[in-house]
Design a protein around this nucleic acid. Structure first.
Lengths: 233, 233
DNA sequence: TGTACATCAGTGAACGCGCGTTCACTGATGTAC
DNA sequence: TGTACATCAGTGAACGCGCGTTCACTGATGTAC
């Protein structure tokens, strides 16, 4: 970091981002105001304008940071799985768990990342930063397919399903219905994440014990028809 | 509806709810203000106070309405599937598709339902209205288990996984990353929903062709170990 | 090394705005007798 | 049936508030010569 970058205050830009996150964590992203952020950073209410053209730019910077951190966590989690015949699926599971863990740990980041209306104006190619985490997911799934741990063919249906599942779990927890627990799940979010990832993984594992869905056509025609219809539609 | 309920204006309560939904649809839930709602309803800015104690109460009423409508759509979709040996799984699929379809069609409703901070003060037992849709999902899954179309045992892991998947898909679409489509999915949200539901369904179907996961232990010990760990954790 | 100047990162006052909410009111509707 | 009164659903003015943003400014830091 150049001397210029920490001019005067030390690193007001960083301080403002941290203050924003802390405030969003406390009172919700919607309640986040530039003036409050400046107050929290111990600085006059328009000092932020020397670092961000407007409020949207500050939020966009937070989102960017968040997507980078998410990709980092996924990468680290995946790399922590030792090589071996089962590694691809275990790495995919690790990515999924890392996604949920990141959302829970950095809820303010996660909320800003997926509230496009907040940073809309400032972010010319909005949400483009999701690219890297998305690529990691695709790579993990393709690796599973190559290793015969997930069905062959277009990976996108699997990508979409996995992404939806972990994103949905994180959203349901952060948005209340799960954390208020009127449903009797009664578990920590980490355990719920392990349940979802484990359920998907064990369904896939069970499905892959037979060579391929096509091989079963004679055996269970009803299932074959349904399967085809649903995935092709 | 009693005469009293439509006093004077006709049915201002209804009109206010509709105006709120229309505004939320146009400019986002966050931008929704009581004054704007009144303006849209063609009424002075404090007429709403004769129908809702405050802003939170109006939003809570919208959420309640939304959960009821969601349950209705799921019920109708499920009931439309004719009886037969494959009916339970087809009904579960229909519920999942109805969930996503509802979110897409009534995005304003959906957003208010899952933004607890908005209606927090007014809703003493917040999100309790999710109870009915949730019960429908549990019933559908238990029916599949009884019919041998999903693995036996505690239904909650499956419930959680299905709910997460459809909720996640709806959220990803409504919150941008999917609808902006930098990922090349290039499909309508209805097709994406069919893809996710179909992928889950076909994995489950493939997994159920063998009698039960336990039966495979000798055949693939690695898979057995992973499956057990992940779901139990 | 010293000096003159440019730039940079902050301050403080002020703007106009829309918000939620309160208040006293008005006129239409309903009701007791 | 008519009359007196209560209730109810709306109006319009006003409140205080925090917001995002603009402006002219100040003093610290950097730089050319």
């Amino acid at each position: 970091m150049s001397r210029r970058a920490t001019y005067h205050h030390g690193d007001l830009r960083r301080t403002l981002l941290d203050a924003s996150l802390a405030l969003a964590e406390e009172s919700g992203v919607a309640a986040l105001s530039l003036r409050e952020v400046a107050r929290k950073a111990g600085v006059s209410h328009n000092a932020p304008y020397h670092h961000f053209p407007d409020k949207g730019a500050l939020l966009a910077a937070i989102a960017d940071e968040g997507f980078e951190a998410l990709a980092r966590e996924m990468t680290v989690a995946s790399a922590a799985v030792p090589d071996g015949p089962r590694a691809p699926l275990a790495r995919l599971e690790a990515c999924g768990l890392a996604y949920v863990r990141y959302a829970l740990k950095s809820r303010a980041h996660f909320r800003v990342m997926f509230r496009p209306e907040l940073a809309q104006d400032a972010c010319v190619t909005p949400r483009c930063s999701m690219t890297r985490p998305f690529e990691l997911l695709v790579e993990s799934i393709v690796a599973c397919q190559r290793a015969g741990q997930l069905p062959d063919g277009d990976p996108m249906p699997l990508v979409l399903t996995c992404w939806s599942a972990v994103h949905g779990l994180a959203s349901l927890w952060l948005d209340g219905p799960l954390s208020l627990d009127p449903k009797g799940f009664g578990k920590s979010p980490e355990k719920l994440a392990a349940t979802v990832v484990g359920t998907l993984s064990s369904l896939a594992t069970a499905a892959m014990v037979l060579p391929a869905p096509r091989a079963r056509q004679g055996r269970d025609d009803g299932a074959r028809r349904r399967t085809t219809r649903s995935t092709r539609e």
